[in-house]
Amino acid sequence: MSKQILVGVAALALCAGVSAQKSTADGIAEYRKMLEDGNPAELFEAKGEELWKQKRGPKNASLEACNLGQGPGVVKGAFVTLPRYFADTGRVQDLEDRLVTCMATLQGFDAAEIAKTPFGRGEMANVTALATWVAGMSRGLRFNLPQSNPLERTSYEIGKRAFFYRAGSHDFSCASCHSEDGKRIRLQDLPNLTKNPGDGIGFAAWPAYRVSNGQMWSMQLRLNDCYRQQRFPYPGFASEVTIALGTYMGVNAKGAESIAPAIKR
């Protein structure tokens, strides 16, 4: 399987050269079609599953007892209910934050160390792979975040306020690009994240494999790079603002079918 994907990626790279001779529109249509075959995210899913079952860390334990909100060890269906409130930590957590909690409590890793690690490196790369696998286990299920706990409702309200918060050198907020239907930046369609943007769109598409840079992007990295382009300062990994935004987008996406891990340009 990994060989097939490599061949596919190589073909894609080749095609980029050839398509320069065609019209831009043709090239884009062709490129989008190619993206539908063979998603390298599968490699990260396989790695994530292995990491889940493997005994690792100072405590030499697996993550199989990790509670993602559906009970210890229950993975299927967990992704489409996150972020949610967890009684043991006393806070609302998204998937990546929760995985780090499990890596700390079950395996003995240092949670603060992981949170400080850049995306794509060390244990942070493992968190991304784990998140990719956990998300994939809910493929085809519909988002249904709980809002019964007062802290979950507060998280939504803070997320909404963060979504509309304008600042930075360019006065942008999330809403500058993501609060109307049918808008684009250049040719990139922008989902309206103030409501359910549709099956497999927006919150229901990440983690996703980015063809343009060959990286697997988790929702935390997706938000991090949104804020970079928004000309905001650097949001901490699993900081309250990123989790609140996840709650806001996830609750708004209620009923949307998850296609994560998706493949993106």
């Binding site: 905001f232 300062p233 309250e240």
Partner: peptide, 23 residues
Amino acid sequence: QAQKVIKTSFRDQGIVKANWLDQ
């Protein structure tokens, strides 16, 4: 609460400073 969360969730990075959050 949202103001507090926003102020505490971001840090300086390179040329971009946390006070860019000021409105």
